[in-house]
Design a protein around this nucleic acid. Sequence first.
DNA 1: GTCTATAGTTTGATAGAC
DNA 2: GTCTATCAAACTATAGAC
Lengths: 192, 192
Amino acid sequence: MDTKDHLLDCAEHLARTRGFDAFSYADLSKEVGIRKASIHYHFPTKSDLAASLIERYSERFLGQLYAVSEKDGTAGHDVRAYVDLYRQALAKGTQLCLCVSFSAARDSFDEATLARLNAFHDRSLAWLATVFEKAKTDGSMTGTLSDPETEAHACLALVEGAQLVARAARSEVHFNRAVTPLLDRLSDARPH
Amino acid sequence: MDTKDHLLDCAEHLARTRGFDAFSYADLSKEVGIRKASIHYHFPTKSDLAASLIERYSERFLGQLYAVSEKDGTAGHDVRAYVDLYRQALAKGTQLCLCVSFSAARDSFDEATLARLNAFHDRSLAWLATVFEKAKTDGSMTGTLSDPETEAHACLALVEGAQLVARAARSEVHFNRAVTPLLDRLSDARPH
DNA sequence: GTCTATAGTTTGATAGAC
DNA sequence: GTCTATCAAACTATAGAC
């Protein structure tokens, strides 16, 4: 079971740097240190690997979001934590988060994996909507004119796009620049 | 020269739907109606094809942007036209624009193609910055608190992310929802 | 669970006829 | 310019020994 996790770790790294369609079992074999055939024992097809990757990523990431919102801080704090997760995943401009990588390769996946990808986005949007709903009452954000669901869609698109463009330029600065107007709307905004 | 354009058209379509790493010369051959070997006459390597694709796309898209800003309308009008270009490229949730597709596959390209991709983003950002600069004086946008370059980064990230997420869900509505807060800041905003 | 060996297919790319 | 024919390499996946 330890080998399986190691395989998932390396496969996730390859998917986030090269893209899911741009790495093979041979590449994965080299990174993990076992033979190609042994990978097929754990993940019979690459499609199985994709399903396991998005499932693990989704649980892990959403778990982090729920941990943030359980802390009972301001909505501004929650939004900042959300943006921080995407900045961390960017890894100084070298990687995408798995959901951005998988979104780009969406036509390569089967229905089960696509369903999990869509479920991840839906649950992210639901989490964000509750945060923006909270912002309406705790006063931790300024200029929240649109309804919470709409703000949620805009926030998700912003961080995913910021990550994509920043990785293309290999520049964390591009990410920070793109999210500045959002972070500036938080009333507990720190100087930058 | 007509065959070359036809090849570029089909290759662009494949890159924008499946991804650059997920189509082959065999796939392209079927769409265009000539044999694989004939494609190599026009584009000796797939790397040459990538370079031609991003060059043509960049000239075409930036040409459309300059045509918009030459019209001497409000900044609000320019931003709306910019968002419209990305909505059109989304094709009802079925395609990405080439720059989003290429950004995701960036590690598959050589230096020349990467330079053209980065140049496209830089020129887009420059165009957007002049638009947001104009917005400061013509009063066609509300709540423009950040400086023009920062607003440009946020706008680019928003439309690219909105397109990526909307295509993943095969839903134009996701795109429209994500860009609503931006469009609502335009003083000539239409009801929706 | 991991290995060697290999099947069967597809990949990007080339040679040479027309 | 397009074709047929072909290449070597890489691909996903399987069989069977250990």
